[in-house]
């Protein structure tokens, strides 16, 4: 997809009118992610229940439209999923960025798969992956703070 079309059709909406920006009332997981090369930062909050299901998620932070939209799209995908499912999605997204995703993984990513082209631009890949890397860290390390 042409980059401007990508902004117009997907990124702008999530960037200017994010569905998941703000604080959760009772997060069980909080994790800060930073992209040092451009200063983008994200504060990812999750509410995970006793069955390991992500019942709610939100993010705060500042950054470019790609990083903000990617985080918002990610949360659309992971809410209601188990931690394992969310990690599989993160694997799929990061595989897509590396160019090694299977068709199955792309399908799994749904709207997030639209970020594939921007994720292949070396300068923007880190913007697109900031939220996903933060998610991966918080779930793998169980980084409750």
């Amino acid at each position: 997809m042409d980059l401007k079309a990508l902004y117009r059709e997907i990124v702008n909406e999530h960037n200017l009118h994010p569905g998941h920006k703000g604080d959760l009332p009772a997060p069980t997981h909080i994790r800060q992610g930073v992209n040092p090369t451009c200063g983008d930062d994200i504060n990812l909050q999750l509410e995970v229940d006793e069955n390991g299901v992500i019942t709610a998620a939100s993010f705060n932070g500042s950054g470019c439209a790609i990083s903000q939209a990617s985080a918002d799209i990610m949360i659309d995908l992971i809410e209601g999923r188990t931690k394992e499912e969310a990690l599989a999605l993160a694997d799929a997204f990061l595989a897509m960025v590396r160019g090694t995703a299977t068709d199955e993984q792309r399908e799994l990513l749904d709207e997030a798969a639209a970020l594939e082209d921007v994720a292949h631009m070396p300068a923007r890949a880190k913007c697109a992956t900031l939220g996903w890397h933060t998610l991966e860290k918080v779930l793998r390390e169980e980084g409750e703070e």
């Binding site: 042409d2 980059l3 401007k4 902004y7 090369t37 451009c38 200063g39 950054g63 470019c64 439209a65 790609i66 921007v118 631009m121 300068a123 923007r124 913007c127």
Partner: peptide
């Protein structure tokens, strides 16, 4: 964000720096 500005300009074949 300057990175978005640079990306949009890049799609118009204009090279600027952002960051």
């Amino acid at each position: 964000h300057p990175h978005d500005v640079a990306s949009v300009l890049d799609s118009e074949h204009i090279c600027i720096r952002a960051g």
